[in-house]
Design a protein around this nucleic acid. Structure first.
Lengths: 247, 247
DNA sequence: CGCTTTTTTGAAGATGGTCAATGGGTGTGG
DNA sequence: CCACACCCATTGACCATCTTCAAAAAAGCG
């Protein structure tokens, strides 16, 4: 089986039942591969793509471009995610998607996907479910950026990213790749860069995390969860993550 | 045709093509009606409903319940909206839904809906599209509450609600029902109630809106749009609203 | 009409943003 | 190999803004 199909199937299995026939249908999908440099946009606000992307390697981010030229990052995505599945049914992109780190994405034609949904509704439902989890993540971001103080906000983001990475087996022990800068963290959490740095220092001082060189290291998971008021149920993932706190 | 079916069909037609066969399938859906009092929850965080609701009358709101007992409102919904369509494919509710004003909702069994999606994929795609527009609204809320100043934040929310109400013909001229209090506005926009009131006074002083007695009156649409940096493209609606600014 | 709830206003204090400068690390070219 | 430049992280001081707290006014509601 092609690696691309395996990545997609594994992802869908994190939350859905995928039968043998469904897997066969997925394996029939064709795609093209695209390699992206750091900070390279691969979809812009206003685009109307005829393909949907699957992240194969690296990390990508979705963001709103604001009138003043600044960005509001909306979410981050890693291998297995389909950051622009919405283009299946919404013509124009209302936000942009860029590579955070050097990344590889596979583009799958919409026609093939919708055809597959007609023949194998369960696969369609699984990808629909995927888009609904996306929406749950957005909702949590509203709450995070509106109702939590700075430390909780940052801790919650770290919890979410680590938990998701762990569910997709993209961590090495208590370390994950998080190749984003302080400025981008600020544009995600709605804080000024100075505040980002001070909050980060605070979390470091409490020995909960280490964040350096594009890597996030979790030193005290229970405490990070507590600071961030993190409850993973909104991620709607089937199984508990492999990461065992305190190791 | 039953009024309920008509409401759903009209809603889907705001963004999707619904053929004759599709309409027939929708009209075959059965439902039960439920009347709700002001502030009554009809879904709680953690519930696992077997039906999805369609708002028939009044306004409902979705919110996260925070550990400290306070709420973060996530979105508001009016007649034609399906505020819990996600329960079709996500088992547990990660947020609650309550009636903002006295409201009427129709509950449609999931089984009937998924069966219809299998037989008439286009209807499924239309409702999928609906959930994707929901997600776009959530994304905009992230940006609104994270990157815009207080006046813009409030103006943007008013623009969105008015534009959506107008698209569904739920306005009377430049007036719409918006039966929410200042406290709830604050829990939506992430501001303290005192700030809500002062910001509201500011918008009033600029002669852009009037907000009183559960009604929002738009006095100067272009100015409100400018203050809120409102660009409706994220709502992905087909047609321009009927409301003509300046009348 | 009296009670409750909501809105409005004021003042004090906390918090985060802005601005400016410093430091550290990396890559390049002399 | 060193000097320089650049980018990013870091820190400090000041200031604007929003939150909190408290109280009064207004509006619903029985």
């Amino acid at each position: 089986m092609e690696r691309i199909h395996r990545i997609l199937i594994d992802k869908l299995k994190e939350h859905s039942r995928i039968g043998h026939e469904d897997m066969v249908a997925i394996q029939a999908l064709s795609f093209t591969i695209r390699e992206l440099g750091r900070n390279e946009d691969f979809i812009r606000q206003g685009d109307a793509p005829k393909v949907s992307a699957l992240v194969v390697e690296g990390m990508v981010g979705r963001y709103h471009l604001l009138p003043n030229g600044r960005r509001q990052y909306l979410s981050f995505h890693m291998a297995g995610d389909m950051p622009d599945s919405q283009t299946l049914f919404l013509d124009r992109m209302d936000h942009a998607v860029c590579a955070i780190s050097p990344a590889v994405v596979a583009s799958i034609p919409h026609k093939q996907l919708t055809r597959m949904f007609e023949l194998r509704p369960q696969v369609g439902f699984a990808i629909w479910r995927e888009t609904l989890i996306d929406a749950a993540i957005f909702r949590e971001a509203i709450t995070n950026n509106s109702a939590r103080d700075m430390a909780a906000r940052m801790a919650h983001l770290f919890c979410e990213l680590f938990y998701r990475a762990d569910a997709s087996r993209l961590t090495r022990g208590n370390v994950m790749a998080l190749p984003i800068g302080l400025a981008q963290l600020g544009e995600t959490l709605g804080m000024a860069i100075a505040t980002v740095n001070r909050t980060l220092a605070e979390l470091r001082a409490a020995r909960t995390i280490e964040f350096r060189g594009g890597e996030l290291e979790v030193l005290d998971w229970p405490r990070l969860v507590e600071i961030g008021q993190f409850d993973p149920s909104y991620l709607h993932l089937k199984k508990a993550p492999a990461f065992t706190p305190g190791e």
